[in-house]
Design a protein around this nucleic acid. Structure first.
Lengths: 169, 169
DNA sequence: ATATAATGCGTGACAAGTCATATAATTTTT
DNA sequence: AAAAATTATATGACTTGTCACGCATTATAT
């Protein structure tokens, strides 16, 4: 620590530009933007949380199912649902009961009130998807999804495997 | 609520398949996978947290800067850094001091110890990026980034604007 | 010159994720 | 049939991210 180096705006700008080309740096920001926008839309659609919206959508669309099914569809940890469901229950959006055949499972069902909440949010969220299709063509969306599949496959490869692979060369 | 509807595995599978084509549903899972993989790599690279890694990388690469600069590069809220920096300070990775010319700003600088931690993590993280380039060609990465730019631009459009736009048609 | 606005940062409160671990119920082994 | 493994869920602890608000400090207007 001799002379405190000075701030160099040009280097900082350069670093910023570089990070914009780094997929790993972009994903957090893109996801955060998506989450915030989703929350805003949901505000207009009755004030559901994201987890609540996803859950009502799944239940209204595919009928009753277990917590595990919900987590699988939402590609998220079941604990998110374990925590969200009591509140949804309290709000009267869902009912749940233990499965008779397999008493480990909890079967979740949407109520009339839950379906009503879904029906307020659904058109707003549908407009969101429609708006995206005005910005990206069907084909571009397909392209994006195809690349996303491959990026996701990479991201789900365990770190050890990737490091070993590199070492082996 | 007459007869409790039964679970229909086919409908659930269908719902799942449908959600795989929904960009808004995919992003959380893809980002989560990225975060977890990043954390695993960092475990191999000395045990930094993601925020710590990003911050050390920025400082080592572009020299001292303010908290605001760091947040801008990382495209995240300054509060994340406000919270992470005291711990990094305690660990001896960074020093910080108020700017003399503008006493609102805090200038953050990396220490020798911080640079050492960076140098342990950097090759591991470089291998991660190299591994991605083995799965996606340069051109595919460019394509993905180009689409990501447009998706992000969409996601940053305020919900009101998008809803108004739809109404106006 | 002084009131007003904007900026930088810290902090509290929250959402959405993860993982690890515990418990009860079911399956599989032996 | 009893022991061992697996599965479904709940829960605690943690990280990454957001927003809103308050307090200094700086910049802008009148």
């Amino acid at each position: 620590m001799t002379d405190p180096e000075n701030i160099d705006p040009a280097r900082i700008r350069e670093r910023r530009a570089q990070e914009e080309l780094n997929i790993f740096s972009r994903l957090p920001a893109v996801y955060a933007a998506s989450r915030v926008q989703g929350q805003r839309f949901l505000q207009f659609g009755g004030g559901l949380s994201i987890v609540e919206w996803r859950t009502l959508w799944d239940l209204c669309d595919a009928g009753p199912m277990t917590i595990r099914d919900l987590a699988a569809i939402q590609q998220s940890d079941h604990s998110l649902l374990s925590r969200a469901l009591p509140e949804m229950h309290r709000k009267g959006y869902v009912t749940s009961h233990r499965d008779d055949r397999d008493k480990r499972q909890t079967i979740v069902e949407v109520t009339a009130k839950g379906r009503a909440a879904y029906e307020v949010a659904a058109p707003v969220m549908a407009r969101r998807r429609a708006a995206l299709r005005e910005v990206l063509t069907e084909d571009e969306i397909r392209q994006f999804l195809a690349l996303l599949d491959r990026v996701e496959a990479f991201l789900r490869t365990p770190a050890d495997d990737l490091l070993d692979m590199e070492m082996a060369k």
